[in-house]
Design a binder for these strands. Sequence first.
DNA 1: TGTACATCAGTGAACGCGCGTTCACTGATGTAC
DNA 2: TGTACATCAGTGAACGCGCGTTCACTGATGTAC
Lengths: 204, 204
Amino acid sequence: MMIDANSVNIKISPAERRYHHGDLRAALIDAGMRMLERGDADQLSLREIARSVGVSAPAVYRHFPDKAALLAVLAVEGLERLGEAQVAALEAAGGGEDGFNAAGRAYVRFALANPALFRLIMGHAPSDAHAAALSGHASQSMRLLRTSVAELAPPGTHPDMLHAVAMRAWSQVHGLAMLMLDNQIEPNDALIDRVIDGREMWPD
Amino acid sequence: MMIDANSVNIKISPAERRYHHGDLRAALIDAGMRMLERGDADQLSLREIARSVGVSAPAVYRHFPDKAALLAVLAVEGLERLGEAQVAALEAAGGGEDGFNAAGRAYVRFALANPALFRLIMGHAPSDAHAAALSGHASQSMRLLRTSVAELAPPGTHPDMLHAVAMRAWSQVHGLAMLMLDNQIEPNDALIDRVIDGREMWPD
DNA sequence: TGTACATCAGTGAACGCGCGTTCACTGATGTAC
DNA sequence: TGTACATCAGTGAACGCGCGTTCACTGATGTAC
């Protein structure tokens, strides 16, 4: 026999009706991610997240010391998703230079698909908590960039050169993403392909 | 004989003591630019600009319909300065591909020297006024980019290709600028040079 | 040269807004006996 | 199995904040006669 809150007369506090029992922390993170994905939040407010979960604003403080801490968790989660998208793209393209380019396209497409989340991840003026959480993270996206560049480089390339090339590649995709997000360049799948595929990583 | 407000007993309204007589509009724009340059304004507020000029906030509405209009003027002014900096760099380097690279470096250095202003120029979610003012402008920066790419391209290059290459170059410098502004890449003059100079515009 | 008047660039007070955060509280839950 | 109690995740009310904008006003300026 199944027993659940609907069939039996159990007292349920209002908040429990909205987020699953006892997991407000996870519910807040989920809600925040959902709002960032929808992107209708130009900038996310703590009260708005609480509201969308169906809980009072002060309740958030049971699970996070302050707003910055909640945003930091969202940023880390977003960074992970970005890395996963890039790895998937790289593998689907079979690695190598094609795979690296595919990862670059995935970076731009992720940004366009998740504008607010992407801005949060890369966002400036990071709170201390934010910076600490992200920097301690050594993201998958970053690792993919470094290892790809190292693999594709001519053997014996100077580490400074590897670094410069990695930063150049990152700048390339990041700039394209930002300019398209900011409506300075018309967002356009074909243009993404032509900008990214046309580059030469190691001109001789 | 010199006559001025200090030596003669002329009535001077408080505001006139701060901005030169009759030119509050220009004074507001100057103040806004100065605050953007100092960059201590994470985001500029209308009240703050008025305060810094020594005038009440409502006074601004004698000269601008609303805050967005004032910011739009600041953005246009900033865009002009960016273009001037790039043209100067291009000419100092004697034009050609060297000149084009110099203009690229000038773009990044301008961003690092004027973070808040640069963000305003490129800023997302532009108000209608903002977008209209900027788009009607066909900035010098943009013209420099297009003409340089056209000049440096092999003759007969397809216009779509010209466009893609221009957007790639823009993405390059813009990405580097943003990542350095956002502290994702350590701001570093030497790195700017290596990232920009090492690229190949027209790999064969 | 002096006077009456319209203009209009400024003023201070007030509006409503949503924010992050603090506070004292309540009431459901789990534990000890 | 029942009772007393501590815990602690939630509550609503309130705080102070700075914002953009509106309002009725004032007082200096320039013009017409």
